[in-house]
């Protein structure tokens, strides 16, 4: 299980210094372009010629490739195999196993889906690698997103790894007391309750005191919140964001026109 949930790598790069919203807008633009279906090869082109260069620009290429190979390729690869075999369309059979055929059409469809998912997640990966979650949330809060929502997200990012550690401890402890977590289905289903119980109740009990603690620190004060973090935003970036939005609008227009 993962111990660390934030991908952020603290480096000094052009991408790191961009305003979080600029990066978020860019990511959304790339995701929308990949899914609109304007061209079969577009997701691949975006991945190869925009996302990979961006990872170098952000000085996170090493981390980007690691995450892509370890996290992305296995799941995208699995999806590709599933679709290659099970996609129903297609007549030009390449080979078949049992009643399932791998066809030219199913392969090409599998590749399209896989490349879209890959491009979508890789775009977000670039954002997450170069943006501290607190910076992203502070910037969004400053622009009117609820500060409470920002609390929920930054807090979740810290609670999940802690709870994963706790889960690991509980699994070890219960196993050493003889709880069977392998073997037949009955044993494994039975194991759910002693594993989940202590974990869930422990963390729920903390909720009440934590609510008191943040209430004591003016969490619900009816004032406009400020931020300790200073987040730069330049006129050029504002312009860039409008350009991205323009690209999205044109792309959607093109899609409708082509239909």
């Amino acid at each position: 299980m993962h111990q660390k949930l934030s991908f952020y790598v603290d480096r000094d790069s052009f991408l790191h210094h961009l305003n979080p919203l600029t990066k978020l807008t860019l990511v959304l633009t790339l995701v929308i372009l990949s899914f609109l279906g304007l061209s079969y090869w577009l997701p691949t082109i975006i991945f190869l010629f925009i996302i990979i260069p961006l990872s170098f620009l952000g000085k996170v290429a090493q981390e980007f490739f690691n995450a892509t190979v370890k996290l992305l390729l296995p799941v995208v690869g699995f999806l590709f195999v599933m679709q290659a075999f099970f996609h129903p369309d297609g007549t030009q059979v390449i080979f078949s196993i049992w009643i399932f055929d791998v066809t030219v059409e199913s392969l090409s469809f599998a590749y399209l889906t896989a490349s879209r998912i890959l491009t979508m997640v890789a775009s977000f990966l670039i954002l997450l690698l170069t943006t501290h979650p607190s910076d992203l949330m502070s910037d969004l809060t400053r622009r009117g997103v609820s500060g409470n929502l920002s609390y929920v997200i930054t807090s979740t990012l810290q609670i999940i790894p802690q709870m994963q550690v706790k889960a690991g401890t509980i699994i070890d402890a219960q196993q050493s007391r003889g709880l069977e977590t392998t073997g037949n289905v009955f044993n494994r289903v039975k194991a759910v309750v002693p594993l989940v119980g202590p974990l869930v109740f422990g963390s729920l009990v903390e909720v009440e005191e934590r609510a008191i603690a943040i209430e004591a620190r003016a969490f619900t004060a009816p004032l406009k919140k400020t931020s300790l973090r200073e987040i730069p935003d330049r006129a050029a970036e504002r312009a860039a964001r409008w350009i991205f939005i323009g690209v999205i609008i044109i792309a959607i227009g093109l899609r409708i026109w082509l239909l």
């Binding site: 607190s134 930054t154 903390e206 934590r210 603690a213 620190r217 003016a218 919140k225 300790l228």
Partner: peptide
């Protein structure tokens, strides 16, 4: 432990949490 706001990554930010809420 339960008095940590849970949403901050450093002690400095943690202490500033109340002031952020007050719009300082």
């Amino acid at each position: 432990f339960n008095q940590i706001s849970g949403s901050k990554f450093t002690v400095f930010e943690e202490i500033a949490f109340g002031l952020e809420n007050l719009g300082v």
